[in-house]
Amino acid sequence: MKQLLLIVACAALTSGPAIAGKAFVSNERSNTITVVDTETWEVITEFPGGNRPRGITVSPDGKTLYVCASDDNIIRVFDTETYEELPSLPSGPDPELFILEPSGKRLYIANEDDNLVTVTDTETRTILAEVPVGVEPEGMGMSPDAKFVVNTSETTNMAHFISTEDYSIKHNILVDQRPRYAQYTADGKRLFVTSEIGGTVSVMDIAEDGAPTVVGKIGFEVPGVQPEWLQPVGAKVTSDGKRLFVALGPANRVAVVDAQSLEVQDYILVGQRVWQLDFTPDEKYLLTTNGNSNDITIIDVAAEKAIKSVQVGQQPWGVVTID
């Protein structure tokens, strides 16, 4: 009997789904999370993600999924294997975007309505600090050494550099209108901040001590598309720091930018109102959420070509991938 149990247990262990990787997409309007197999690009399942799920990320071990449930005023937590809901985390009101530090311990959350960044301990599920920032905080980026969190405030139009040591703001940098996203290069030497209404990406060099210096601005131009619709939102940079991909919102395109020369090299046509981006962990593919066409586009990163689109829930907002 004991032996039989053991066999059953072994079978259970080995017959687990042999899935290469998964993408989790938050669907703002259908209040769900869509799970997509990143090998076959088939939808595996869709499960409830709380009210108005937007920002989405995973723990460093890939086992825990965190979702900003904006209208529930909490962070919903799920098991990435079973999709079971785990105890929620406090977030402060209207969490929109957040960033998890590399250790997985502290989560930094932008509270749009309250001009705050809330710091939450994911282990004790308590709020450690509230940092007052500019009006309508949104974008959250973290330096690779985890010493700084960068928050962008959409109406104040600044990037606020918050020290993770004492939660004080060390630098404030004005950028163009409605900054949405902050993305460091993997070596921590450069930071990109997208400005949706300004239509630009501000480029900053980051000194050893974390101090930023604005070194340039990237603008966009697509023949036949009104300049007003070139609205940079999500951005991701390859780990070698060579290429920056920028989602251009209602222009329905992702720009490919040489991250050194800051020249725009190409525009990849994707779904409608492209919002956030994430690479698969091997960086072979870049996934885009397309809010108005209710799908995600899969971009072959090496070829810089869109290869497929997958229908997800209503108004997909954010995306995160795991191995």
Binding site: L174, G216, K217, I218, G219, L262, E263, Q265
Partner: peptide, 18 residues
């Protein structure tokens, strides 16, 4: 496909911080 020149305004702004 263009890089916007840094506006003088940007430098005012940066100096404005202090």
């Amino acid at each position: 496909m263009r890089i916007l020149p840094l506006f003088a305004a940007l430098f005012w702004c940066m100096s404005a911080v202090t």
